[in-house]
């Protein structure tokens, strides 16, 4: 079965590379856009207790929504294809990054911030040199959760014509062709594990020296 799957890739290299490319592009763009929205929003929200609470509650509801339901809801409004899939996946990627950014900034100890103020740092210095570095590993933990979710969600984008590796899986299921289904399922699993590993490593690397657990 595995040999058959490999033979399929060998005989259809462009199809496979295109699907892989679309899958990676869809996931990476969704994650990048979500980060650009969620991180600044989280930093602003963390300043005001009421805003932070509202954002966290909204994000918690967002996190519970089934991925396929979100993709399906976007379709009647925006149609099928790459762009609607990107919108849906971005929506799915925002909540974990937003919650972790807020939690990361709020979690910075009051004493540390007070000490920085005492040293004559401005609010801007405190944000850039204290709060953001301390919050970074937590933000990356959020990015890690979102990345895995987006790679997984991008498989479902095949249902609304988004392309990607999910196409092989759906075709394989429809035709009950196990090798074809493996052509989609195995690479996408490796992609997801890779994203998890990559962001896990970044999370550890970006932890400031003084905060690392020995």
């Amino acid at each position: 079965m595995l040999a058959d799957a490999w033979r399929y890739i060998e005989t259809h290299p462009t199809q496979f590379v295109t699907a892989l490319g679309v899958h990676v592009a869809l996931s990476a763009c969704a994650l990048a856009i979500a980060a650009l929205i969620a991180i600044p929003l989280g930093i602003v929200a963390a300043r005001r207790a009421g805003f932070a609470l509202a954002a966290i509650n909204a994000a918690n509801i967002g996190r519970t929504l089934p991925s396929l339901a979100v993709l399906a809801l976007v379709m009647p409004i925006l149609g099928t294809g790459f762009a609607p899939s990107l919108v849906a996946l971005t929506l799915l990627a925002v909540p974990p990054i937003l919650t972790n950014t807020i939690a990361g900034i709020i979690g910075v100890e009051r004493d540390v911030v007070d000490a920085a103020h005492g040293m004559g740092m401005t609010a801007r210095d405190v944000l850039h040199r204290i709060e953001i570095p301390i919050a970074t590993p937590i933000v990356f933990a959020g990015l890690r959760t979102s990345a895995v979710q987006v790679v997984s969600g991008a498989v479902l984008a095949a249902f609304i014509g988004g392309g990607g590796l999910g196409d092989f899986i759906t075709a394989g299921i429809a035709m009950m062709a196990v090798p074809l289904l493996l052509v989609g399922a195995i690479p996408v699993t490796l992609l997801s594990l890779g994203a998890d590993y990559l962001f896990g490593t970044l999370e550890r690397r970006l932890t400031p020296q003084g905060l690392r657990a020995e």
Binding site: S152, I186, V188
Partner: peptide, 21 residues
Amino acid sequence: GFLYTIPTLAFLALLIPIVGL
């Protein structure tokens, strides 16, 4: 943790040769 990272549809698909639909 490994099982949790496998995309949903891929997991369902990988089980098809073993337990079917």
